[in-house]
Design a protein around this nucleic acid. Structure first.
Lengths: 275, 275
DNA sequence: GGTTGCTTTGAATCTCGGT
DNA sequence: GACCGAGATTCAAAGCAAC
């Protein structure tokens, strides 16, 4: 099985995901996992409806304009993803209350059919230091099939039972690793984290094991530090990862090169217990 | 403290919530808790593996002609609620993936500022009988302040610590009582449930204790079986509950009449442990 | 009175193939 | 697309009867 996957089965491509997706063949992707940007202010990247980058301060955008621009951006990439997804392919999107309601509403309107919303419950969330809200201890994932009428999407129901004591897996996922810290976190020579929102591999492992089979093609339009591609390589899935940031592309490629193909493919239960 | 609250401090009113809210004075409500129709869109009947039929939500109030009609309905009641809320008042809405993304998006667009999204995690959810999705084991609440710039909304930060071993309360709520069954569930003489979606008092207790003080005015535009009003009476909060269904109004009024005012107000910690 | 085991049920977008 | 029959499919908590 391992030999079936060559070094090109996981690719990291630099560029604008909407442009690159337009060049891909339609209905060719089994699953898309997307971790879209949502804190536009912190990233200093606001998007106009035509997706040109603007300076939010000098343009004096108010909340509505900013939200509208985010909606346009969201609809654009979701539409592009929808075209390349197989009709029975599924989409995963992760987000927080800042963006997940907008993303969820838009993907419903585009025709995606929600299968589940999943809550990733963190064991070590960042506290609310000022004590003015509840600790934000979870993030939300939406799982949706491209075409409502397709019931033959991939869901490895029996396989996922191992993550809930042999009973059917629930929509609340307690990930022991919590937020990404410790040895898994990619850091530079000075110990500075290389990506601000690196997701734990455990999350992607659940996603990939639940909704794909070995050899399937996974698309990540916002690959960031490359967690999706890394997990795909370990699980023997093909992957196309895209990022507009050249630095992230280099980080993800380097990370990928150090991974042994199909590392987790042999004994998933044992490997899961041993980590 | 108990004597300060008379029998009219919690009222159940029959009528259309949008019309009734229009007659209320503006900026007079401290907190709104809303459990709107989820628009479940159930298609076929569902049977358990033992061939018994699932008694789903088939009520007329959950039927909408289209997604657009649901959005319009949502925007209308949220707008009406917004007018009667104090500028530093907060709004709670509960929902599932069927509706919460639409509701969340709309309330953001109306100017509400989300403080937290909360996940109510159920200890005993209904399983996914066909094994085609993850067990839907949670529902989502959105907590938002009316005006973004108001930082003086009520949040009883220290009080809520008791529900998380003395540490700051998190956004994931494990409610021991789980789904509303057993003695708490209101039933008629034949044992048939009086309301198809009665919420556990434990949820409302968390909501009311977190975001109101004794004497505050709570509004519930979809009062249903009257859980919000019941909890408000036990916690010494005033409450206006509205429902368009005359039967539900009678059920809620009867339920309210049997409750001792401020029952839970004396020793919250002890009461919580003893139930 | 306490324990055991069977029955019931809960906001659910829950199949597939042939005619 | 509608209808029908075969076939595959469930977890925790509460209620209740039996012992």
């Amino acid at each position: 099985m391992t030999d079936a996957f060559g070094s090109d089965d996981q690719q990291i491509i630099h560029g604008d995901c909407i442009e690159l997706l337009a060049e891909m063949p339609a209905e060719s992707v089994d699953v898309c996992f997307a971790d879209p940007p949502y804190n536009l202010q912190l990233q200093n990247e606001l998007y106009r409806p035509n997706r040109s980058r603007v300076d939010g301060v000098e343009d004096g955008w108010d909340q509505f304009d900013s939200m509208h621009a985010y909606d346009q951006f969201t609809a654009a990439w979701l539409t592009a993803v929808r075209r390349v997804l197989k009709p029975n392919g599924t989409l995963w999107v992760i987000g927080s209350y800042h963006n997940i309601f907008r993303v969820g509403r838009i993907l419903m309107d585009l025709g995606f059919w929600i299968l589940n919303d999943i809550v990733w419950i963190k064991s070590n969330p960042m506290p609310n230091f000022r004590g003015v809200r509840f600790t934000n201890a979870h993030e939300t994932l939406i799982w949706a099939v491209r075409d409502k009428e397709r019931k033959d999407y991939t869901f490895n129901y029996e396989h996922m039972k191992q993550y809930n004591d042999g009973k059917q897996m629930r929509s609340d996922w307690f990930i022991r690793e919590g937020i990404c810290s410790g040895f898994e976190r990619l850091r530079d020579a000075e110990g500075k984290k290389l990506h601000s929102t690196q997701k734990p591999e455990a999350i992607l492992r659940m996603v990939v094991e639940a909704s794909t089979n070995p050899g399937d093609l996974v698309l990540d339009p916002f690959v960031g530090s490359g967690t999706t591609a890394a997990v795909c390589k370990k699980l023997g899935r093909r992957c196309i990862g895209i990022d507009a940031n050249e630095d992230y592309v280099q980080i993800a490629r380097k990370r990928l090169a150090a991974i042994q193909p199909a590392l987790w493919l042999e004994e998933p239960g044992e490997a899961a217990a041993g980590e």
